[in-house]
Write a protein that binds this DNA or RNA. Structure first.
Lengths: 352, 352
DNA sequence: TTGAAAGCGCTAACAC
DNA sequence: GTGTTAGCGCTTTCAA
């Protein structure tokens, strides 16, 4: 049983392959309805399905976009970027070729070559941690960077607006009356771009609020497990009252989870005794903590959409800011923030 | 600047395209070394890269496998299956086409057609929750089911061995001396296959241990959030001492997280006052709980590998058990299990 | 040992 | 309006 081809349809319908092609590709403006309908009917009757490979060879378009990512499994929210990219691709009749390189440059190179050889119509290069990344050799022009920026620029890129996100988080704390706000920063190599950006946002809000930043309030922690947060927050909470923070802004939700634990071990209630804000809005964590964690969401889905839309030409690539689009990170208010406890007065001279 | 093709290489090397093809495809057994080397040198010099589309049209093989999944973003461990499938594909020179259908049958149908039209060499159909699934129309023979089984059979499939996994979990509890072991089951529609299987495993272990199962010890909970676990475990823990369990086997880690919370609110220590075992070994949750949760791991990576290996013919499809392969779920021992507290004696007549 | 020629299934000039 | 023809870039008989 042979596959049915365009010739079979043509023969059955008593027309030429050209006519079939014209009809089936919507170019049937100049073809009478009777012919058109007959061709269509025959096509479905005999179960004709065009061979995309042949079409691609002829048209030089594969309707396929490749998504190259350095890692996909290590971070659970990464899937949202893939999901978004896939959704947009599908909306526009494209298919997604997924390649995972584990950050290995050789694999990356090979992947790019293989993809090029397959004539993909475009690529999106996704980094699962916001970073400046080396551009793989041979990466075609127009490739969109997702959650990372290419060293040297030259490609459109989308990243979370970590600075603004951090500002929203810290502002929330300031608005509640906190003045001693600690920042548990990422203490691991390589330091994520986000680390610097969020710290900047943190300082900026303090500055605007007229709060003198206390450098001792910025501590570093391992950000991969809650244990890092336990240690860092513990150190902060064990300080004498005057030097102790009343609120902690954490680099991510896992660190915040550790901060919760450190607080609990010391008999401190959240948010009455200590306010905590996280970052990431990590699925199954932020909302599930007790109390639910106020945090800043990373717009992975939106970034994924943006990247694919730009790659597909649906959205224009940004011309300003070196081609980098900053996606807003919304503050998610839950129940881990409250005004500071009364027994922690504002620094000397500022009391009522 | 035109793409360089096989003809260009042939011309530069002073041979025919046939020879180039032969050399570059390793069929060069009968071609003298000098010719071979020259062809290779010229090819790299002028940067020749074969056009896979043309090759596919000719050979009728695309070296592409499609992974269709009903949903990818909703469950964070799903990525491991995708990752595994991609890894295996790459190991064998294949690329992965990823399609997400959100469980929509129309989308599924369309996707299968599009994939067939693209001449993919095979498909893997992944379900993100172990279930019996309707086979999409037109799904080609040989498609492998991943984490789900096709209604009606007829396709190779791999699923977690939930029954054995549950047995390992409950056995762990029995070994520690527990006799009043509760099971917080999934209380949502549609009831996952895993629910029945794990309950069976639970009952089987009790039976073998000579423990009369107490039906009141099986309660249902919403399994999507920790809140469901809080309520179910709370109800269990508020019972009078004689009817209260000393250990809880939870349908998943999120429920276990809720059980932790319910216990803590009642001043109960884990594992001294209450032992808890989860299921899933969910990333960033199980290991991060305080104390770290003993649980059963879902072998997503292994299942993903298996599926792709079978699809690629590297592994033979199972002939027994209706083509379904059961992947072992290892017990991950952490710190949430201990012997029951002394004040809960074994049922009357069984004391020392 | 190498080359000529056919053709994978389709689309698009161009002719009629 | 519709058909003829010529490829897209490669592999693979078959012949030399």
């Amino acid at each position: 049983m042979k596959r049915v081809g365009i010739k079979d349809v043509a023969r059955e319908a008593g027309v030429s392959p050209t006519t079939v092609s014209l009809v089936l590709n919507g170019q049937s403006a100049r073809i009478p309805d009777t012919t058109r309908d007959r061709v269509r009917r025959v096509a479905t009757e005999i179960g004709y399905a065009p061979n995309s490979v042949a079409r691609s060879l002829r048209t030089q378009r594969t309707h396929t976009i490749a998504l190259i990512s350095d890692r996909i499994a290590t971070t659970p929210f990464a899937v949202e970027m893939v999901q978004a990219a896939q959704d947009v691709a599908r909306e526009h009749g494209y298919l997604l070729l997924l390649v995972n390189t584990d950050g290995d440059h050789d694999v990356e190179r090979e992947a790019v070559d293989a993809l090029l050889s397959r004539q993909v119509d475009g690529m999106v290069y996704a980094c699962m941690w916001s970073q400046v990344v080396d551009v793989p050799a041979g990466l075609p022009a127009g490739t969109v960077f997702l959650d990372g920026r290419p060293a040297g620029g030259g490609f459109p890129a989308v990243m979370p607006d970590d600075r603004a996100g951090a500002m929203a988080a810290v502002q929330e704390l300031v608005d509640q009356g906190h003045t001693r706000i600690a920042y548990i920063d990422a203490g691991e190599e390589p330091v994520p771009i986000a680390s610097r950006l969020r710290h900047e946002g943190y300082l900026e809000v303090l500055r605007r609020a007229g709060i003198e930043p206390d450098p001792s309030l910025r501590v570093e922690a391992s950000i991969t497990t809650a244990a890092g947060g336990v240690a860092a927050a513990g150190e902060l909470l064990d300080r004498p009252p005057a030097q102790r923070p009343t609120a902690i802004f954490c680099f991510n939700d896992r660190v915040a989870m550790g901060a919760y634990r450190a607080a609990r071990h010391r008999g401190l209630e959240i948010p009455t005794d200590l306010s905590v804000v996280g970052y990431d809005d990590q699925q199954f964590i932020a909302a599930e903590l007790d109390p639910p964690l106020t945090t800043v969401a990373l717009p992975h889905y939106e970034m994924g959409r943006w990247a694919m839309q730009v790659r597909l030409g649906v959205l224009a690539a940004p011309t300003e800011n070196d081609g980098v689009h900053l996606m807003p990170c919304p503050l998610i208010r839950r129940e881990s923030v409250a005004p500071p406890p009364a027994q922690h007065p504002a620094p000397a001279g500022d009391g009522e």
